[in-house]
Design a protein around this nucleic acid. Sequence first.
DNA 1: TATAATAATACAAACGTTTGTATTATTATT
DNA 2: AATAATAATACAAACGTTTGTATTATTATA
Lengths: 343, 343
Amino acid sequence: MVFKKRRVKLEDIARKLNISIATVSRALDKNPRVKKSTQEKVFKTAEEMGYMPNQIAKSLSSGKTNIIGVLIPRYDEPFFIEVCRGIDQYARNHNYKILISSSRNSYQFEKENLISFEKGLVDGIILSPTHETENVAHLNDLTSKGMPMVLFDNIREEVSGADHVMIDDIKSSFNAVEFLIKKGRKKIAFIGGIKQKKVFQDRFTGYKSALNKYKIPFHEELVLHCNSLDREFEDREILDFFKHLTTSPDAVFTCTDNYGLLAMKTLLKTEKKIPEEVAVIGFGDLGLGEVFVPTLTCVSQPSFEMGQKAAELLIKQLNEPEDILHKKTVVKLETKLTQREST
Amino acid sequence: MVFKKRRVKLEDIARKLNISIATVSRALDKNPRVKKSTQEKVFKTAEEMGYMPNQIAKSLSSGKTNIIGVLIPRYDEPFFIEVCRGIDQYARNHNYKILISSSRNSYQFEKENLISFEKGLVDGIILSPTHETENVAHLNDLTSKGMPMVLFDNIREEVSGADHVMIDDIKSSFNAVEFLIKKGRKKIAFIGGIKQKKVFQDRFTGYKSALNKYKIPFHEELVLHCNSLDREFEDREILDFFKHLTTSPDAVFTCTDNYGLLAMKTLLKTEKKIPEEVAVIGFGDLGLGEVFVPTLTCVSQPSFEMGQKAAELLIKQLNEPEDILHKKTVVKLETKLTQREST
DNA sequence: TATAATAATACAAACGTTTGTATTATTATT
DNA sequence: AATAATAATACAAACGTTTGTATTATTATA
């Protein structure tokens, strides 16, 4: 066959059966306004002719696309992928698809992506703002135009029209550090991420407040805020950090799994025994921790559930009547400490 | 503001300026049929009124959505994510967005996803069929209906209307095994994946033909085809495999990075020295290899480029005239062996 | 058997664009 | 100043659905 087939449409079925398009449409919807025998004829003919509804036309007519836009800062971060899986699962079960875009850690790209979402392709948006995002006017604008939105991970409290899904970062990191302290560790290093991200700020706060509670002096020297966005440079930052330490820590608390692994790797190179001499705890628990020897104790973050919850909140918004103002919901999910060989 | 704003449309601009919708539409397109001064008025008013074009209406009218559907077997496989990144990058630069779905390794879900793509939401499809996919009629059906399609990874040669992007798995694994042989290794174990996937079959073929070329006897005992789809069970399979070996291998060639790591982990537990006693090579090279101690030598697969190439081929198809039959293109990308500490 | 009630279907507008053709306004040509 | 050429714009159909209202066909009621 050389020519591409013209798609079969309702009109074709209608013409073939000598009935109106409206009746065909309603028949396929099993609308009781059309009688059983007609419905059956329509279904049979639609099948025979290979009818496939046109989603675009449906969307235009109904004003709904049943697509959720998801905007993450990067693809190559298992955490975000895991959240997307959670979103996808919940969305799929509720007849929504997801359209994932990456802002590539850029405020500019974030805005561009949101504009493209705004063009009516998506019914609502789930996003994790980039660390570059200082001004959140573009988000507030969008919600005030009536675009349902849910923020997760790097949430911004100033965004008033969107729901928030997060974990209690302060508490989680407090617990992890407290755990180390209770194991008798006193010189606990902290390796965090980009300072502009609220999650990393909070994890740092939790670290400090645990030290504080147990009257353990805080040493600026034991703290590293990784600023690299690129995997390659993280390596080097962490290597340098340990190389320049004047006192050797007896524990390291890191804000991601990957930092935890890199820390262990560096420590092992300097012949440190893990966990005897140095205990290490990572954050996230997305599979990496179990691969390494020794396995890495982690704060287990419910990433998948985070996605599910975000999708749930968004779909709830989508079902709210259009004429009422949305009331912001904030959901905090629980983390737990998964103990492995590194502690 | 309590009520959601009604979206501004071309008609609103037209009414405000007392001109026709068509002129507004053309003005915004910078169509020379409308004079400069009118164009400027229209742009200004559109800006003032906060006009945002409706993508759905555009799509219905133009018959194009500028969306590429991507169907992968699973999200939690860095290889697929990396391919998606490649697709996304190329697509974005050519004014396409991507809609990613997962078939969750199920033939049934694969079909369902394709049906949903067929409903007109996407202009073309890039997919990696699941290992469960025996009958490819659904793929041939779709291409013969005129849906542009590109297959990657687990390609199926029977699909005649789609382009293929792949690596030379036979050659790549042959080279890796030959490398081990040239290093003097004689008892080389093979750890492959699901037997139904062509990539794994080919990598096994390459392994055997390297042994054959160098007259090294093939031992069934040294071969494992991992059948687990779940990360947790892979662990166990590989553990069992090594436990039950009667002769100890002096090298292991594995078909994924993860198998390579698991193999190393298991070997280290039995006090084997890597690479002195056992050399290990993985396949893929998606970051994991560099984290572990020792670092893992890998066949580096150009995943990102694979995605780019797939997107390039698809977009080329999309630009072909509708009335000619597409001629199948097959692209084979080069791999290279990245040497690290494990060999 | 005429009329009312209801079932079944048809008609037509709407969703927001694009685009071919028709029309009107402007400028150039004589 | 009348006409031709062209520039600028308006009109209307099309994309494939959905859905409110109008119409016709069927059955029930008297």
